[in-house]
Amino acid sequence: METVGGLLRGWRQARRLSQLDLALAADVSQRYVSLVETGRSNPSAAMVLRLADCLEVPLRERNRLLVAAGFAPKYRERLLDGPDMSAVRDALARILRAHEPYPALIVDRRWNIVLANAPVDFFLANVDPALLSPPVNMVRLGFDPRGLAPRILNLPEVRALFRARLSRQLAKTGDPEIGALYDEFFAHREPEALHGTPPLDVAVPMIFSFQDRRVSLISTITTFGTAQDVTLEELSIESYYPADAESAEILRALAETGSGTGEAASTVDARRGPA
């Protein structure tokens, strides 16, 4: 049976903090932190949340801490398609539409695609249909040989970036499914020699071979900074921008001659699994 003290100790060690570091951050004594971790003191719900805040524990795991301490969970986990999340859905749809003709998608904590705009479909034309069965996983889609990997011209650089992202996410959340995803695509592979793809001044691009042309994209990641709902906190918006004028022109031309750009979500949305 897990205890709140054991869980807090695990998070403290994951953050590489001493008991004194945590005590100073939470404005309590080091002895108190020791008593909580060893189960000799029962923290209040407010104290559990204070310590969790100092440790930057995700909302899902804060609920777990509260339950282990004998309290009710504080943070709700609403379904994204539920009636009380309509404002969130509208905001996400606006973001995706506004980003066209450039691709953008929204993923959950395990990299499953929740929503995507229509330009994303242009890149999925030759993907194995098995990878498009719900839930569609962005990491698997990108690095499985049946997916986008053969068309990413600077695959070693892109793989290195995603290896680092998943490693940081695993350290932050401790999510075993992220660990499994990391093991599947990164853990047992030797780091690849980089091929010297010329970097931009500001970011490493993702370069696709697309219809006998090169499309170079840079990405940004957006999250909800004030989320008080588990589902909302775990969503991230991956937005891609052309890295050069030629790529921008290709994407604009696709939008003009393609289909479906007036919709907020692409066919990926129709295949999505639960958030």
Rank of each mutant, 00 (worst) to 15 (best):
S219A: 15
L141I: 06
P205F: 06
A26R: 01
A193P: 11
D212W: 08
A125T: 15
T231W: 00
A116C: 04
V107A: 14
L251H: 03
L8M: 12
T231H: 00
A171Y: 07
I237L: 14
R272N: 08
V158C: 09
E263D: 14
R62S: 06
K74R: 15
S18D: 07
D269P: 05
F122P: 01
A255K: 02
G70M: 05
D212K: 14
I218E: 04
Q169C: 08
V136K: 06
S247E: 04
G142P: 06
S247M: 03
Q169W: 09
L8E: 09
A116P: 05
D121N: 06
A118L: 05
T267A: 13
V107M: 11
Y240M: 11
A52H: 01
H188L: 09
V114E: 08
A275F: 02
W111K: 07
S216M: 09
L65V: 04
L65I: 04
D175Y: 10
A245S: 13
L24S: 08
S266T: 01
R12C: 06
A26M: 03
L115Y: 12
A245T: 13
F208T: 00
A45L: 03
E233M: 01
A171V: 07
S216I: 02
S219E: 13
L20K: 01
A46R: 13
D212C: 03
N63T: 00
F123I: 01
R151P: 05
L254P: 00
T173M: 10
R151W: 12
V28K: 01
P83V: 11
P156R: 06
T267G: 10
D201F: 14
L96H: 04
I178C: 11
D84I: 10
S239A: 15
N112K: 04
A243D: 10
E184G: 05
R40I: 02
K172T: 09
D183P: 00
G70S: 07
P242K: 00
R94A: 14
E263C: 13
R60N: 02
Q228A: 13
P134I: 02
T222L: 15
H195E: 15
E246T: 12
L20D: 12
A248M: 03
E77L: 13
M1A: 12
I221D: 12
L55E: 11
P101T: 05
L65H: 03
F123V: 01
R89L: 10
Q211A: 14
A69L: 08
S209E: 15
L51A: 03
L96K: 02
D144C: 07
F143W: 06
L166I: 10
S259E: 14
